[in-house]
Design a protein around this nucleic acid. Structure first.
Lengths: 211, 211
DNA sequence: CATTTAATTTACAGTGTGTCTTATAATGGG
DNA sequence: CCCATTATAAGACACACTGTAAATTAAATG
């Protein structure tokens, strides 16, 4: 017996929800995610504590209600382009929207991808990146009917993890490069690997894993 | 005025600490890290709750007291070998101790690197991997007096993140490959990059970032 | 066996959670 | 503009967990 609550439009509702969202993001930057109590959020938002539970089950639900549209927007921006194998591997068409977005919300990510952040959030981002990368890998292989040497899921997880690592380095070092530069560096390292990065040759290998 | 407590050896002490450590790891696998209370731990260990605080400040301190020696052991195993630039880039001398260790503690890592885990732990592992990788990168460049195209910290963060991503994939897919295979696959992908992985050529590039 | 130290037991104050009730205020529809 | 509806406020409650304290009991060491 699922009782689905349908809400007629009401300014008070959206206003309160927005106040709570804003309070949360401000508090995250100030004191870290874990240290925030529901009381903190409602105090900051000038809302009674029981009101919180009229809108969100817990802190995580509030957090994800804040970021969901951001990732929809990012994915949409990414897929505005028609990705072909050539475009993905070419340095001319590198997509820097991820790094752009991180730069615009640097304070937020600096906290949320640190010990003061939330593992749920970090893994959500990682899964998002894996999924997007996965689609790119697929579009890289399917049109050719070609087989990659490694399982696509493996490669996507590899690249997504690498991106998180690099973003953390970027933020920890106060963003010494522009988003465009970062995307380009990342692209070179991803496509060409460590041997290129340290400018040393490795022998060719026909190593292959059946997926 | 630092009051350093010096403990003469006493079986009761080490016994209690070990009981608490064992209780924690068992509980982590059962219900996830976050859901565990101090009470849970002491109940499982058959120890009074105030006793916990005679040994550890909080849950995190207990956790890290459990894993510290593991990582010392791993690092020591890794550095038993004299790493030269050739050895690091060669597929003959791949070090699989990390994957071996993960496989031996698969249940534990499956939880701790998931939403039911702990961000502090995940980042601790990430930082450990970054540090170890960093030393490898350095040993790759210094003896030659050569310069890498990218800042070593960048590369190390990239590879460490990639390793976490891959380990998560490996665990999520119930370890379809042996630790040795995983280390080998990882090695190929790290050194040769995406172009190799999907078996498509990219033009050479003399792109370089001054560190 | 005696001394030292660890652990137990009980208790307490503090903090946060999730829910409930009653009263008040704002909103959108007619 | 008024009214029925719905959101919010205010206060209170039971519950769980934390960190610490005091007095007592138990165990290990030499």
């Amino acid at each position: 017996m699922e009782e689905v609550q349908t809400h007629r439009p009401d300014r008070r509702r959206e206003r309160t929800r927005q106040l709570l969202r804003d309070a949360l993001t401000a508090l995250i930057i100030e004191k870290g995610y874990d240290a925030i109590s529901i009381q903190d959020i409602t105090d900051r938002a000038n809302v009674a504590r029981p009101t919180f539970y009229l809108h969100f089950r817990d802190k995580d639900e509030l957090l994800f209600s804040s970021v969901r549209d951001i990732y929809e927007d990012l994915a949409q921006r990414h897929y505005q382009m028609e990705w072909t194998p050539e475009a993905i591997l070419s340095a001319e068409t590198v997509d820097d929207s991820d790094f752009q977005h991180i730069a615009e919300n640097a304070e937020f990510y600096k906290v949320m991808l640190s010990k003061r952040g939330s593992i749920t959030f970090l893994l959500q981002v990682l899964d998002y990146l894996t999924e997007v990368t996965m689609k790119d890998i697929i579009s890289l292989m399917v049109p050719e009917g070609s087989q990659s040497r490694l399982p696509p899921g493996f490669i996507a997880s590899f690249l997504a993890g690498a991106e998180i690592g690099v973003v953390r380095w970027w933020l920890a070092n106060d963003m010494p490069h522009s988003p465009q530069e970062m995307a380009l560096i990342m692209h070179h390292l991803c496509t060409r690997g460590l041997a290129w990065a340290v400018d040393m040759p490795v022998p060719p290998s026909d190593f292959r894993v059946e997926s």
